[in-house]
Amino acid sequence: MPRYDYRCRACGDTFEVSRPMIAAADPAACPQGHDDTVKLLSTVAVTGRGGAAPAPIGGGGCCGGACGC
């Protein structure tokens, strides 16, 4: 289930709420009981080993040197 980050405008606390994506836009009350909260923009970090080869080093130019620039 996705987690969403919120910040309380009244007390400044930040907190997470786990809820289904269909409820992502629903308001969330602060753990201290305040209702004036704002949803924060979250970033996702994906790590792991993929099957893709690493990007070549060097080359230069706007297209890695393929156009001769």
Rank of each mutant, 00 (worst) to 15 (best):
M1G: 10
P2V: 09
P2M: 00
P2E: 02
R3C: 08
R3D: 14
R3I: 12
Y4G: 02
Y4W: 04
D5M: 13
D5W: 00
Y6K: 08
Y6Q: 08
Y6G: 06
R7F: 06
R9E: 08
C11K: 08
G12V: 00
G12K: 09
D13P: 07
T14V: 11
F15E: 05
E16W: 12
V17D: 02
V17L: 15
S18Y: 09
S18R: 14
S18G: 13
S18N: 13
S18C: 10
R19Q: 06
R19N: 03
M21Q: 08
M21E: 14
I22D: 14
I22F: 04
I22N: 01
I22Y: 12
A24K: 10
A24G: 05
A24W: 10
A25L: 11
A25H: 13
D26W: 03
P27C: 05
P27A: 04
P27K: 03
A28L: 09
A28E: 06
A29C: 04
P31D: 13
P31K: 12
Q32Y: 06
Q32C: 07
G33C: 12
G33V: 05
G33W: 04
H34L: 02
H34T: 02
D35S: 13
D36I: 01
T37K: 03
T37R: 11
T37G: 08
V38E: 15
V38T: 13
K39P: 03
K39S: 06
K39Q: 15
K39G: 09
K39I: 04
L40M: 00
L40G: 06
L41E: 08
S42G: 07
S42W: 06
S42P: 03
T43N: 10
T43L: 11
V44D: 05
V44I: 11
A45N: 12
A45V: 11
A45D: 11
V46L: 14
V46A: 10
T47K: 09
T47L: 00
T47I: 12
T47D: 09
T47Q: 02
G48K: 04
G48V: 01
G48E: 08
G48S: 03
R49F: 07
G50A: 03
G50F: 00
G50N: 07
G51Q: 05
A52P: 01
A52C: 05
A52H: 14
A53C: 01
A53Q: 14
P56K: 13
P56T: 01
I57C: 00
I57R: 08
G58N: 01
G58L: 05
G59V: 05
G59R: 14
G59L: 07
G59Q: 05
G60A: 04
G60W: 10
G60N: 04
G60E: 11
G61W: 03
G64Q: 05
G64W: 08
G64K: 00
A66T: 14
A66N: 09
C67E: 01
C67Y: 03
C67P: 01
G68I: 03
G68H: 13
C69V: 06
C69T: 09
C69D: 14
